Simulated scan of single mutants.
Amino acid sequence: MQTKAYRIGTRGSPLALAQAAETRARLMLAHGLPEDAFEIVVLSTKGDRITDRSLSEIGGKGLFTAELEAQLLSGELDFAVHSSKDMATILPEGLEITAYLPREDMRDAFVSHMARRLAEMPVGGMVGTASLRRQALVRKLRPDLQVKIFRGSVDTRLRKLAEGGADATLLAYAGLKRLGKPEVATEILDPEIFPPAPAQGAICVEARKGDAAIAALLAAVNHAETYSAVTCERAFLEVLDGSCRTPIAGYALVEGDRIRFSGMILTPDGQTSHSIASDGLVGDAHEIGRKAGHAIRDRAGTSFFENWG
């Protein structure tokens, strides 16, 4: 029997804390445990501390997870809660994603005080976003617009927008919903036109491999449909060496015993893109994503990837 509180690692942003609290609440309900059976441990990550540059300039996605993963490996944390889209495709030796919570809305939200929709932005308008995928998609759909780097927490980006730092920004709709601010979105973007980042909207729980007690604890909150969909998306990303230097989009939908995947790669200027769609049995989710990644890479040709880094 566990005598000490389970230690849950998380970043300190309001969204990260909301995700850790949701994980704790689901575990309390699943196991009939009191709140004090869990301790939420907040760690600052390099990705949180450096907000004036794009992630591609300072080292990529691992900057949001490295400190948490170090304490997982040392045993100081029992498990850590992350936004799945922040996770590198290859995890440190000895760690694994053990569970995914039920996915929130995967779509992107357009937020602006100037226009209700991205299509209605005036020529020359400025869109603030640090995501190369979002930058590339904006340039693909609206090459007449300008883009600038906009980093920080959801609240920070909304404050920058209100202060006139840009005319519009793009945020994960899931994050706005988890923070109780869905009304901030002026448009919810169609994923067929503006596809999301792989794993967007899904909370994952990372733990040590071989820790049977923690695996059993987390199994009770794992959502099988989300697990399959995100597994497919991350397999696609892994084949393409996905990082914050590469504009890659992709999402999978589970329909009964089948899974349907759509993926896209773009050049950073948005002027060239390739799309792919595939489907198959849910049990083959990883292989479907992997094959889609290889197929789109072959279709694009090696020269497509040369200027991404």
Rank of each mutant, 00 (worst) to 15 (best):
L145P: 02
R107P: 09
M264F: 12
G201D: 07
H223D: 15
S262L: 12
A220W: 09
H82Q: 13
E187I: 04
H31I: 04
G250N: 10
D36I: 10
R117C: 12
L281T: 11
G263F: 05
L189D: 01
G164P: 01
A115Q: 05
L101I: 03
V138F: 03
I40V: 15
N222M: 04
R159W: 13
R7L: 07
P34R: 01
V138G: 00
D298F: 03
R139Y: 08
M114N: 08
Q19K: 12
R260N: 10
I8S: 06
T129S: 14
G59V: 05
D48H: 13
V147I: 13
R159T: 15
F79S: 00
K4V: 09
V221E: 06
L68E: 02
G75P: 07
R208E: 09
P14V: 04
A300R: 00
V123P: 05
M114L: 15
A213C: 10
M121S: 08
L145S: 10
A166Q: 00
G293R: 03
F64C: 04
K160H: 10
G62C: 05
G47I: 01
S83Y: 02
G293D: 02
L72H: 01
A16V: 00
E57R: 07
A215F: 09
S273F: 10
Q135T: 14
D144R: 02
T246F: 13
P102H: 08
R151K: 12
F194I: 05
R103H: 02
G263L: 05
A292E: 03
T23S: 13
H113C: 11
Q71C: 08
D155P: 06
T272S: 14
Q146M: 13
I8Y: 05
Y100W: 09
A235G: 12
V42F: 03
V230K: 07
T51W: 08
L171Q: 04
R142M: 07
R234Q: 15
L101K: 01
G309C: 09
D48G: 08
R290P: 06
V184R: 01
D269V: 02
M1P: 14
T45K: 03
Q271I: 04
D108C: 13
K291E: 13
T51L: 10
G263V: 02
P143T: 05
Y100M: 04
A115K: 00
L179P: 00
L63C: 07
E206K: 07
A136Y: 03
L176R: 02
P198G: 11
E22Q: 15
G283W: 04
T246D: 11
M1K: 15
G59T: 05
S228V: 11
V154M: 01
G60R: 04
T10M: 08
D241S: 14
